[in-house]
Write a protein that binds this DNA or RNA. Structure first.
Length: 564
DNA sequence: CGTCTGAGCGCG
DNA sequence: AAAGCGCGCTCAGACG
């Protein structure tokens, strides 16, 4: 059962349709004030809600205490279907404008409208219905029908249609999970965060001032470098001061500074580290992003072309290890932090069906397995070589190890090499579930008409760059497919437990290949089972019964810094 | 005054 | 030794 939901001048319009997007009942108009109640009643028949964008509707419903099971996010699904190679031959994809590699927009609007301005926090029920211009019910129905039709035309070869359908469901589930996690928030103890800050920086300084510890280091540097007005935050200023003191660096990056033995280096590196903490995750960050013991970041599902999530505000996907101690479970609760070990190389094994590498992947530590098979037991070499293959390294140690890797694993290396050649040649590549890379950038297209030798060199460089992108895309994108399925399967299991009246954890954080569940202590064991079952289910959904393991490492902790 | 870019560094 | 993929954020500095 599909329920289409659209904004309407008086509130919202709801209409039931079949799987093809054909209306099977009259539309029903619902006033704003009644929407949450009506939706909550309709939810009992477990429909799939079809709406333009999850973030226009779902956050306000969560505020009103209404949780939903499933949806079809037309905007996210459109972005996938328009670009997917599995539907490239359909009228739907052909008539759509494509974004290119250098575009910013997630998807060009056709039926669907641009995003509304950010919602006002204090007008909850007004926001239950999106205010700005929104597609009408007819437009929603037409777009849904067009998407379902395109999906039906997708190639059935090798289960492609099924995989793409799965991707759309997982992406839509992801949108709901993102809204739910933002609503729930990451448990964050401000007092612990402040302790960490004070321990490193000293007491909170007045606005516009450096904390005591940074001030002291700054003065020390000014003395050592004989530069009384030095601003260590200015790379240019700093560079000049270093050169005046005979420290001949080309950049002021950490690794390059570490080369030098000069007495200024140690306090400088210390300054940089602390100044980063102060600027990026200091007291102002705490003021801006943490309230009532929760950090509520905004996730951007589909924010990365590969299918990974991005985030907006608060740097949610870059919580530094330094401050992870502030992420702390509530009383009577635990944090369950699970990550998929060495996800990308394992995904490569399954994609390439490399049975030799699959043997190595039977080891809980894949890199150790690889090391044993061809790198004389040297784990770090094995790791560098394999990551180099996935990223397209050509120089340095990683580049030197490539021939050895290729000899041992011709299928796995051949798979990423093919993706690289496709990208260099301007073709698109596709993840396991059917998310395709964007077509080449304008630069790539223009560079093809090069005539002079100089232009040709430039063109080769642009092509190789695109090759590295597509090489990585197939692996990163398929890993993102896996992670989306993992997340959706985990959510399903947690919801089932809760519906059965059992104590159940809540998903509170997701980071590419890692999830965090905040769980009542008595539910920890069940949560761990759910996490592991979901991982196994995700593998089977993507690859079927292949002899490749996707082990999950699970830590049950009070605070995030104790995981890993 | 605001907006943009590059450097640098945080995360996977 | 510091590369090869994907991001977001802050600051300095340049520009309009």
């Amino acid at each position: 059962m599909y329920l289409l939901l659209a904004a309407h001048p008086d509130g919202a319009a709801i209409q039931e349709s079949d799987a093809a997007g054909v209306a099977v009942a009259e539309p029903r108009l619902v006033r704003k004030a009644e929407l949450a109640g009506v939706v909550s009643v309709l939810e009992k028949s477990r429909p799939r809600w079809v709406w333009n964008r999850t973030q226009d509707w779902y956050p306000a419903m969560l505020q009103a205490g209404v949780e939903l099971e499933r949806c079809h996010d037309l905007t996210l699904c459109r972005a996938i279907l328009v670009h997917s190679e599995f539907t490239a031959h359909t009228g739907y994809a052909r008539s759509a404008e494509k974004l290119t590699q250098d575009d910013e927009m997630p998807v060009p609007p056709r039926v669907l409208q641009p995003p509304p301005p950010p919602a006002e926090q204090d007008a909850l029920f007004d926001d239950l219905v999106p205010r700005s211009t929104q597609p009408s019910l007819n437009e929603i129905r037409a777009e849904f029908a067009a998407q379902q039709h395109a999906l039906g035309q997708a190639s059935r070869e090798e289960g492609r249609q099924h995989r793409l359908k799965l991707l759309l469901a997982a992406e839509s589930a992801g949108a709901m999970i993102a809204a739910e996690m933002q609503f729930t928030g990451v448990p964050w103890q401000e007092a612990l965060h402040e302790e960490i800050l004070e321990g490193h920086l000293g007491p909170r300084p007045p606005a516009g001032h450096r904390p005591a510890r940074l001030e002291a280091l700054c003065n020390e540097l000014r003395g050592i470098l004989q530069s009384p007005k030095l601003n260590p935050d200015s790379p240019q200023d700093l560079m000049r001061a270093l050169h005046r003191n005979g420290i001949e660096v080309k950049t002021t990056r950490q690794w390059e500074l570490k080369e030098s033995k000069h007495p200024a280096i140690e306090p400088l590196l210390e300054y940089k580290k602390l100044s980063r903490l102060f600027a990026a995750n200091g007291w102002s960050w705490l003021d801006a992003w943490v309230s009532e013991g929760r950090f509520r970041p905004e996730y951007v599902v589909g924010g990365v072309v590969s299918g990974r999530w991005a985030s907006r505000g608060g740097g949610a996907l870059q919580i530094p290890r330094q401050i992870r101690g502030a992420v702390h479970a509530d009383p009577g609760h635990k944090l369950i932090v699970a990550d998929a070990s060495q996800l990308e190389p394992r995904v490569l094994v399954a994609l390439a069906q490399d049975s030799k590498m699959a043997e190595a992947a039977r080891d809980k530590d894949l890199y150790a397995g690889i090391a044993a098979q061809g790198f004389g037991g040297d784990r770090s070499k094995a790791k560098i070589a394999l990551l180099g293959a996935i990223y397209g390294a050509t120089t340095g140690e990683s580049g030197r190890l490539m021939p050895q890797l290729t000899r041992t694993y011709p299928r796995a290396v051949g798979f990423v090499e093919q993706a690289a050649r496709d990208g260099e040649g301007g073709r698109t590549v596709t993840s396991r579930l059917g998310r395709s890379s964007p077509p080449p950038s304008e630069r790539w297209i223009r560079s093809q008409q090069s005539t002079t030798a100089e232009e040709q060199r430039r063109a080769d460089s642009i092509a190789r760059s695109r090759g590295r992108f597509t090489r990585n895309f197939v692996v990163q994108g398929s890993a993102a497919d896996w992670a989306s399925c993992w997340l959706a399967e985990l959510r399903r299991r947690l919801r089932t437990a809760r519906a059965d009246g059992l104590p159940a954890g809540e998903l509170v954080f997701f980071l590419h290949d890692e999830v965090m569940v905040h769980a009542p202590t008595e539910s920890v064991e069940a949560c761990i089972n759910a996490i592991e079952e979901a991982a196994a289910a995700a593998k089977e959904l993507l690859f079927g019964r292949v002899p490749v393991e996707f082990p999950v490492s699970v830590a049950v902790v009070d605070s995030y810094d104790k995981a890993k």
